[in-house]
Design a binder for these strands. Structure first.
Lengths: 214, 214, 214, 214
DNA sequence: ACTCTCGGGACTTCCCGTTCTT
DNA sequence: AAGAACGGGAAGTCCCGAGAGT
């Protein structure tokens, strides 16, 4: 009877993500979550040792989705700077489409001060971004910067900004436009002028649609 | 005895900000806050109608500090782009130094979904930033952008990024360095190349030290 | 308002004792206790940090009553063996009349294995009994025993026996008769035959009626 | 496969007795019990209808052991007063050695107020003791008592006292010594002086070692 | 024939925001 | 402004079935 258990667990993670998004970590109650999942706290308690356990599972699931996206991108051989662009577009899409991703972000911030969770989703994002920046720098695709860490800080901020922006009730098309606008400014700061035309600041096909499969 | 009342109220706001920073809105309890303030819950309820009332007061206080900073900057006649730079430096400093500012940011995010607070501190920031960008654009200090909203989105993201960065336990000198690095990249994206030398990406004297006076 | 608080606290201790007697430590719920006391769980929580806190208070209160009884007995100058007799009679009476005393006994047994409570009521009894036996032995009122610890073990057992007996739903007059019968056998074992007439195995006036005053 | 089932059941009873001793009836959980038994809750519920069912089984098992002891004693033709002595020694030994016996006692007390269990172990003890006292009285082995019920109450108390004493963490040799001391005082109270030498207050060979066989 | 995985409700303790009295 | 009391949940977790294995 592995299948039903697995499905139940997934429903709980999903419901948890939904409620964490709506109310935040502390205000979301296990009762609500179980109810949204169409289950009881008994089921929840069977699958997760505690509220924190559920949170960890949400983070972990979000992280798994991220890893899968990165893997595909890598497999597709997208060059680093374009990969950064696509990644932010995918982030915007995922934040809008997948409650787990959104919850992963929100929870990360709210649980600061608590004992460190198993996986810190926000951190995971930064790590991926940093890796791509490194690759881009090694490939000579970045403009020379007077200060080290400039691109890193800039990209981290961009990720944060998209996260917050998507939480303001903005529509996805609008969000997508803003991410494009962001990049049309950002590219100037990151790459040499003569490379500008190499990149497409709009969302590519890769950046949407595979989440549900995971 | 107006004076003592005022001091008590300030102590409560301060203690509230501290606890909201440490535990988040929902997990911070009025008991702790009162204890940190060296008072009792009775006193707290004398000054504020409810927990939300205290939160509003914290936001309002943070907003007042921001307004005061903006007023001084305006009075000093700082040109818009430089004002943006100084503003972020001041933000970094204030996030590190004044619990009220930090709490203002954190609470704003966590209380999403609640009935709108009297003042939304994060929003207030964005508003000020947008205003400066408008002035800069009108003054012709911005580079032509293919997409509208590029600078706006970029700056909003920068503010978010600094907010999150300051919450990671980073030291103030390091944070300050990162803000400088951020700007050395950011300027390229925002202003025409020939204006680059006009601005100082380091923190100016104006950006620290006056908070306590408010 | 010290008086009201004191009265509330006493009511809670009393209600706790009642419920602990009726259901045992683990099965008695704070909700029931508060209800019996005509108060709410909030009030309970104000006065006691936890269920264990309440238990400790019950034990402590029982102990206080015991101490007071011993003090009076001492003040009255009752000789040791008679004091032992009176003490058991008082125990029988108190077990029947004062829920706090009864609860003190029951809780002591049930909480074995838990971290040691502030005061162990059963132990306190044994200590008093042992003290009186020592005094009796020094005063030469005890018969020579081939084995040391004989009287001590015997008296400890008597106390246990009365405790259990009173829990079987026996009426007080019957219980009192049994205690008398117990002593008419016990005296033979404890004191020399020629002293037998010195003692009154029935309950003396001192042994009832002052509990409510404490 | 009757044999394995039987063994499983016995392991559960044993594990239940252990946990009831350690935590008391209400606090011992079926999960712990199953774990101690190296089984799962499913298995437990196959063998027992409920927690109370398990408790009854423990009581019943304890009672069976007691009956077997009494039967052997009877078969050996031990005279009543000596039988009483041996019985208490056996009790001391069994309390120390067999968790089921100990649990039988503890549970009896804690379940007061619950619906009457199938067998009340403590009561069963008293019944056996009373029976022996009757036989002794009929055989003229008891001293004349001014009050009826003196020996009965005394012996009941002795049983209680041993039960409690064994729960204080005392070592078995020490406990055994105390039981001997108890009897050296008790005999004086129960039998005529001229019979005193007939009895051996130390534990006889019969009183240890056969429990495991049951 | 027997055992376990999985899930369901029902409480209980704890404790929080709040009000009322002084 | 403190002290006291109030309700109302929330997390946790326990006892217990029902279905699926073995």
């Amino acid at each position: 009877m592995q299948a039903r258990s697995e499905r139940t667990r997934r429903r709980l993670v999903h419901a948890g993500a939904q409620m964490f998004n709506r109310c935040g970590y502390a205000s979301a109650t296990l009762g609500q979550i179980a109810e949204v999942a169409g289950l009881t706290k008994g089921a929840l308690y069977f699958h997760f040792a505690s509220k924190d356990g559920l949170v960890d599972a949400v983070q972990e699931q979000a992280h798994a989705v991220l890893r899968e996206f990165v893997r595909r991108q890598w497999a597709a051989g997208v060059p680093p700077v374009q990969a950064l662009i696509d990644m932010t577009h995918w982030l915007a899409w995922a934040l809008h489409e997948d409650p787990v991703i959104r919850a992963g972000f929100r929870i990360t911030n709210e649980c600061t001060g608590r004992q460190p969770p198993v996986t810190d989703f926000h951190q995971a994002w930064i790590v991926e971004v940093l890796r791509l920046i490194d690759r881009a720098r090694e490939a000579g695709e970045l403009r020379d910067h007077t200060c080290a860490d400039g691109p890193e800080t800039l990209m981290s901020a961009a990720v944060c900004g998209i996260g917050v922006l998507s939480g303001t009730g903005i529509s996805y098309p609008e969000l997508r436009r803003r991410v494009g606008a962001l990049w049309s400014s950002l590219l100037t700061a990151l790459v040499p002028p003569e490379h500008m035309e190499r990149y497409d600041v709009r969302a590519s096909a890769l950046t949407t649609g595979f989440v549900a499969a995971v």
